[in-house]
Amino acid sequence: MVADAIVSVEDVHLRFGGVVSLAGVSLTQERGEILSVIGPNGAGKTSLFNCLTGVYHPQMGRIIFRPTPEHEVSLIGRKPHRVNRIGIARTFQTSRLFNALTAFENVKIGVESRQRTGPIGAMLHLPRTMREEKESDTRTVELLDFVGLRRRGDEIASGLPYGDQRRLEIARALGTEPKLLLLDEPAAGTNPSEKLALEQLIRRVNRELGVSVLLIEHDMRLVMSVADRVTVLNFGQVIASGTPGEVQRNPAVVEAYLGRVETEESGGEG
């Protein structure tokens, strides 16, 4: 197999004063795969996301992103909106929608970030503005349809049920045409049926849109069913990596989640 990594993280260190958040994390995600990052609370998962998206700047290490196989860029020191522009979109641990705007507007803002209309074009209704406006409307409807919120476009984002809010956030992220989508605990706070819909949505994002997905998740059932590979973090270090099955049986993982266990049959469930 020819290695075609969409993102490689190499020996990344991140400290806040004396607190070490990431202590030499290295991981690679292949193009087109769903990689899940798991680990106990405080293991450094969201810190890793924030390093990937330009929110935090690690003191050491390299993060290389390849939007296409031939093209590689370093992510360190890049501002969040520039990271987004080169093809990495994200959602947040607690959803951060534009609460007072409609669902439609939320997605449209994501779609429009790829366009070029400036204030003068907008004020004068230049032809390009009108054309882009039409294009973004079409794309927004498509995306709302894709996540199953087509009928709720006119509703205020904060008024949507929690599961819908999470899917709306994914639609907004997809609007920016990412090659890689980072999902930070998308299932947190959702009910079992919403979880099921989410699981299908993640698969469809991956298969139908060809977007690689990096997933932080606590819900082990979701991780095990959706992820191609799993990487486990603990205390800012990678302690295991492999297929869901391999990781589940890894003694270090079991220990990280449950403490030292004597019996053999306990699973990796957290």
Binding site: H81, R96, F98, R172
Partner: peptide, 13 residues
């Protein structure tokens, strides 16, 4: 509404 979310959605704040 939310600067962080706007930046993450590709809006140059």
């Amino acid at each position: 509404e939310d600067e962080v979310a706007a930046e993450a959605s590709g809006v140059g704040v």
